[in-house]
Nucleic acid binder design. Structure first.
Length: 739
RNA sequence: GCACCCUUAGCUCAGUUGGUUAGAGCGUUCGAUUCACAUUCGAAAGGUCAUAGGUUCGAAUCCUAUAGGGUGCACCA
């Protein structure tokens, strides 16, 4: 506490309004130079106890496909609040930054740009050249993103920066693949997969996005039956006719009966199959199947051991089975096939405008065409012996499956999900989970460590020799993302970081990637480390525009975080993304919101100036009067309340509480009442009151600055730097939270 | 089709195990301002808490149904 006769020597900059554009870069430089975002530094400098509890968050790594949007800004604001609070609590606090190569998304973006400018495909360029171009793009994009992240004031430990494709992470991915293969959890097999003919790769079930579409629905005469379809081009090979075993309309037909009938390219013999997959309510209750190009049909075919014939190739071209239509693209073939069927009198009716959902690749690809392909899969239902497990309910050395391990992690409470309604959604997803297709037919990513020589296969990290050829495919980007909580800590090496910081404390991300990412981390971490990846999941909502619409280029309603930071400051931007948001609920953001919080930053600035001016020539070591002590306690109580809210992940309530205390109570009432006390100083008792009052104001200000710091780090730190030097910490970022 | 969420002031949202007169920000209107304030301060208007039942001494809050909006999953021959 400064002593008698303290002269605040208020810097000139303080006499004007708070100017975020001049203060923020200086504060950022101060933090960076301190390197207090690195917990090791804090321990070395004696700020954090070496045995202090760890608090870890891994930053969901932004894709290196572009620039930061408001969703990222919200994520950074929320996580930085949690991190700064934990750090001020004296915890060993680590927030790990990173970026994600985002295999398909990045490659397809670069491919698209190359095609636009040079009319060249990846096959024209070749693997090496394309990879170089993608890597260059990723590098540039990465730098942009890092700079944007820093401008938000995010106190990440950049010395631990990780990129999914850097050497350490590459090693982790290879190791993970080999271990899972050796445990029998990764296998290669012919299965029906989601094939994207545009990007020429498979995608996982979760990456599929169903888009509503209107198409004509055709009914054909198929012998004595009527069958329906929107996709006549798949029907060439259909020689099985399926009906429900209990459908009385077709009781006369027995399973295995054959019927001769006239079909697209001439007479065929069809076989009756009775299977419960046929829906009696739909259409005529009878269907033909195309096992090579439909998931359900494939399952039916497998159940009954039926022939499976490919009709359409990888580029969407009809194969010789299509007879005269062979070599034609399915889009062009469809009307021609209808024409032919009509001329043969086989079209019984057409229902125009049939509304149905078609599968598309949500990663910037095209319509999905189911195909049977030899792919790598992770077996989620296969039993295995887990060597080591800290997951409650799963004992080390016991037999389990990945699915039940994922379930146990949440059911046991080892992982808590906020808001908790997402736990149900998580279970539902697990129950419907099928084997995860992890191979992708693109070039950018982690190449699968499998080696072939003739029919022999070896799975190992290093090449077994020159005569062995490596698998051409790369891994699904979520495979490497699934390792993120521990690959960033140096796994598979037994590092000090791994021991200290894993499992991580909180995983904060958008609810839209609960399945893609959160669930996959639970899977990977459970199997490979025997631990849950994090103890708490916090799912934030999506940032939408003022009218609740998604922000998009075509709507022109994008609010760019950098523009907001330039205009109103990072603090105002952060606060606007936190106040009024509850976990799991979308946030409607308008520029007015941001502007409002800029005024608040300025308010804090002015409060501070007033307090410092009031402290001029006052003894801040003076005894506090009873009234003033109560007022300081009031501020302290608010800090405690804010802390409780933060621990409950109610950042909206926390911010609201300190906002109202600072503005409506401290500035509007306490300061107003203090003006007279500070000025009147004729009698000794009045002077004592003035000294006490000044001290109260100063102490309250310190409490407000500390409490507000996680939310508005820049303005609070800027003010802190102008406070007298004998405060409890030279840098507010590592000051101890109010006690 | 199954499940979940939302509906509170003009707008965006709080309202924690049911408990006085339902709150905030923004916006609107009126007034003040040589005062720490690129402003700020004071005041006002504005709500049948979606609708209808029920439980209860008491319901924005719990239960049921309905309507509207949204999301996830499945189906899609």
């Amino acid at each position: 506490m400064p002593n008698e006769g303290y002269k605040p020597n208020i810097p000139e900059a303080f006499l004007k309004a708070y100017d975020s554009t001049s203060e923020e870069p200086a504060i950022n430089a101060l933090w960076e130079q301190s390197s207090f975002a690195n917990p090791d530094t804090c321990v070395e400098k004696g700020i954090t106890a070496p045995d202090a509890e760890a608090f870890t968050i891994v930053l969901p790594p932004p894709n290196v496909t572009g620039t930061l949007h408001m969703g990222h800004a919200a994520m950074l604001a929320i996580e930085d609040i949690l991190i700064r609070y934990a750090r001020m609590q004296g915890k060993r606090t680590l927030w790990i930054p990173g970026t994600d190569s985002a295999a398909i998304a990045t490659q397809s973006k670069v491919e698209g740009e190359i095609y636009k400018k040079e009319k060249k495909t990846r096959y024209d360029l070749g693997r090496e050249e394309l990879l170089a171009r993608v890597a260059a793009f990723a590098e540039e994009s990465k730098d942009t993103i890092i700079n944007q992240v820093k401008r938000m004031g995010a106190s990440l430990d950049w010395s631990r920066y990780a990129y999914t494709l850097d050497d350490t992470r590459y090693k982790a991915v290879m190791e993970a693949f080999v271990r899972m293969y050796d445990a029998g959890l990764i296998y290669r097999g012919n299965r029906i997969v989601n094939w994207d003919p545009k990007l020429q790769t498979t995608v996982s079930d979760d990456e599929i996005e169903y888009v509503e579409q209107k198409d004509p629905f055709y009914y054909f005469t198929y012998g004595p039956f009527e069958i329906g379809t929107v996709r006549p081009e798949t029907k060439f090979g259909d020689k099985y006719v399926v009906m429900h075993p209990e459908d009385e309309r077709y009781a006369q037909y027995k399973h295995g009966d054959t019927i001769d009938l006239e079909w697209i390219n001439g007479p065929i013999t069809a076989t009756i199959i009775k299977d419960e997959a046929a829906d009696m309510e739909f259409g005529s209750g009878v269907m033909t199947i195309t096992p090579a190009h439909s998931g359900i049909d494939f399952e039916i075919a497998q159940r009954h051991g039926l022939d499976i014939e490919q009709v359409i190739d990888e580029r969407g071209i009809l194969l010789p089975i299509a007879g005269e239509f062979a070599g034609t693209h399915i889009k062009k073939a469809r009307p021609l096939i209808i024409e032919k069927l009509q001329s043969k009198g086989l079209v019984s009716r057409v229902e125009e405008n049939y509304v149905h959902n078609v599968a598309t690749n949500s990663r910037g690809g095209g319509m999905i065409e189911p195909q049977i392909k030899k792919q790598w899969f992770i077996a989620v239902n296969k039993e295995f012996t887990i060597p080591h497990s800290e997951i409650p309910g799963i004992a080390s050395g016991s037999t389990t499956t990945l699915k039940s391990m994922m379930r146990a992690s949440v059911e046991s409470g080892a992982i808590q999900i906020a808001p908790d309604r997402f736990e149900k959604i998580y279970y539902h997803w697990i129950d419907n989970l099928r084997d995860w297709n992890i191979s992708r037919q693109i070039w950018f990513g982690h190449r699968i460590p499998a080696w072939f020589k003739g029919d022999e296969v070896k799975v190992q990290i290093d090449s077994p020799g020159t005569e062995w050829a490596q698998d051409e495919d790369v891994l699904d980007t979520w495979f490497s993302s699934g390792l993120w909580t521990f690959s960033t800590l140096g796994w598979p090496e037994k590092t000090e970081d791994m021991r200290t910081f894993h499992p991580t404390s909180v995983l904060e991300t958008g609810y839209d990637i609960l399945f893609f990412w959160v669930a996959r981390m639970v899977l990977m971490s459970g199997f490979l480390t025997g631990q849950v990846p994090f103890r708490q999941v916090y799912l934030h909502g999506l940032v939408r525009d003022g009218q609740g619409r998604k922000m998009s280029k075509s709507l022109g309603n994008i609010i760019d975080p950098l523009t907001m930071i330039d205009k109103y400051g990072a603090d105002a931007t952060r606060l606007s993304l936190v106040v009024g948001t509850q976990p799991g609920n979308d946030l409607k953001l308008s520029e007015d919101r941001v502007r409002g919080y800029k005024n608040f930053a300025n308010k804090i600035w002015n409060i501070s100036r007033f307090v410092l001016e009031s402290c001029e020539n006052k003894n801040l070591g003076a005894e506090l009067s009873e009234t003033d002590a109560k007022l300081v306690d009031e501020a302290r109580a608010v800090a405690a309340e804010v802390g409780t809210h933060i621990e409950n992940f109610r950042l909206d309530l926390a911010a609201d509480a300190i906002y109202h205390f600072a503005w409506d109570r401290f500035a509007a009432e306490i300061i107003e009442e203090s003006k007279a006390v500070i000025k009147a100083s004729s009698s000794p008792s009045e002077q004592a009151a003035a000294h006490s009052r000044a001290r109260m104001l100063y102490e309250s200000l310190v409490i407000i600055l500390k409490t507000l710091h996680p939310f508005m780090p820049f303005v609070t730190e800027a003010i802190w730097q102008k406070l007298p030097h004998d405060k409890d910490s030279a840098i507010l970022m590592v000051a101890r939270w109010v006690r």
